[in-house]
Design a binder for these strands. Structure first.
Lengths: 69, 69
DNA sequence: ATGTGACTTATAGTCCGTC
DNA sequence: AGACGGACTATAAGTCACA
């Protein structure tokens, strides 16, 4: 199971559902725009803390970002 | 929200429910024994990939490790 | 608005030990 | 069986210029 790909898909899906750009979400989550882009492409292996910040910015629970489809 | 503390509590609870030692779980998850100990004490900030390996070793979904109580 | 490579610094993660 | 520390090495965190 490639968990980074799961996180990537969930972050991208939820971000678009909320009508946010990568730039806006990155700003909310207080992470760099290019770093968020890397996460959405599954090229990064973020820590639990970063996952939590992104979840908070998306207004969802951190565990939601690990749900596979 | 301190997600590392949430992970710590969940890993410890599930490991004990399954009657495993830290040593056994660390071996199953292919992570270092002392590192797993640090995670269970909330002193570490593991990556999503490590979270997935621990979840697999515990026989649960990775998102379970982020459920708060 | 996003993808990418290269980069530096911080810390994840391992291995040795002691208590 | 588990907490904790020191000294490492690998990689995450965070940033940039440019496509």
């Amino acid at each position: 199971m490639d968990w980074n790909a799961v996180v990537a898909a969930n972050v991208k899906r939820l971000r678009i559902e909320r009508g946010l750009t990568q730039e806006q979400l990155a700003h909310e989550a207080e992470i760099d725009l290019t770093y968020l882009g890397g996460i959405e492409r599954g090229r990064r292996n973020p820590s639990v803390e970063v996952l939590g910040r992104i979840a908070a910015a998306l207004g969802c629970h951190a565990s939601s970002l690990l749900h596979d489809g």
